[in-house]
Design a protein around this nucleic acid. Sequence first.
DNA 1: CCAGGGTCTGTAGCAGGTACAGGCTCAAGA
DNA 2: TCTTGAGCCTGTACCTGCTACAGACCCTGG
Lengths: 140, 140
Amino acid sequence: MINHHRSVKVLRRGDLARLTGCNLETIRYYENIGVMPEPPRSSKNYRVYDDRHVARLRFIMRARELGFTLDEVRDLLALVDGGAQTCGEVQGLANSHLASVRAKIDDLKRIERVLSSTVAQCTGDDVPECPVIDALTEVT
Amino acid sequence: MINHHRSVKVLRRGDLARLTGCNLETIRYYENIGVMPEPPRSSKNYRVYDDRHVARLRFIMRARELGFTLDEVRDLLALVDGGAQTCGEVQGLANSHLASVRAKIDDLKRIERVLSSTVAQCTGDDVPECPVIDALTEVT
DNA sequence: CCAGGGTCTGTAGCAGGTACAGGCTCAAGA
DNA sequence: TCTTGAGCCTGTACCTGCTACAGACCCTGG
């Protein structure tokens, strides 16, 4: 039996969300801010996606998982879309992102050191004297 | 010569900002969200601060530097204000914060590993093949 | 007397989403 | 056939942690 209305299954927003694990609303958000393209619409104004949209969204999600900001994602996509992107250009973006990731790690490690050494001095008792409070209150 | 209008120097918002290094507007923000108390007002409706406000704001800023969220700061302050706070209670908050800091460090380290090992494969040349793009595009 | 700095208020903006109201559309079940 | 529920559409508000700005005041020095 032939389905005259849609001979191939089209993807709607919910399908794209399920296929990628992306939040439904986030897809529209990505479209609004221009990292996802505006897809064609069905006669009833429903967004219609295909495999390339799936790939695109997965790309974005992977980049986000690697901590790239949406601005950086936009840059990466622009390079890819440009077609003539070079390994050197992408490497540049990735390296500067890597630097900021390392900076964040250093910040957090510093925090971890201070916090853990302070907490280590706690008696944990039902007494009001507390090294953590002292550290925060310190007049130094 | 006696200053009949203000025998002691009162602190206004700008003074508090300068003394603590806090942004001027942030002070008002902290008041709005209830981590800084509403200070008394002068006859002309200017906020009037004193030493305790300076100490309070420094406390908040130190806690923020240690990565406590404003919600956590609120909890810490509630304990301190309660007067009967115990070292055990504070230790509990600090430890759970410490756990989330460590989780963030682990996340970032994972990101760092993936990113650096990927970038290491880049030739950096003017060629379109790029391991970073491959990793993001991967169909896996 | 006026310029400039400070202060006051409310409000908008940033990232990066998330959520919800109010209205359509569509397919399946009774 | 009618109804009910799920899905989609739009715009908009909300979240954290600020930051900034407009338009009114107020105060001091020159």
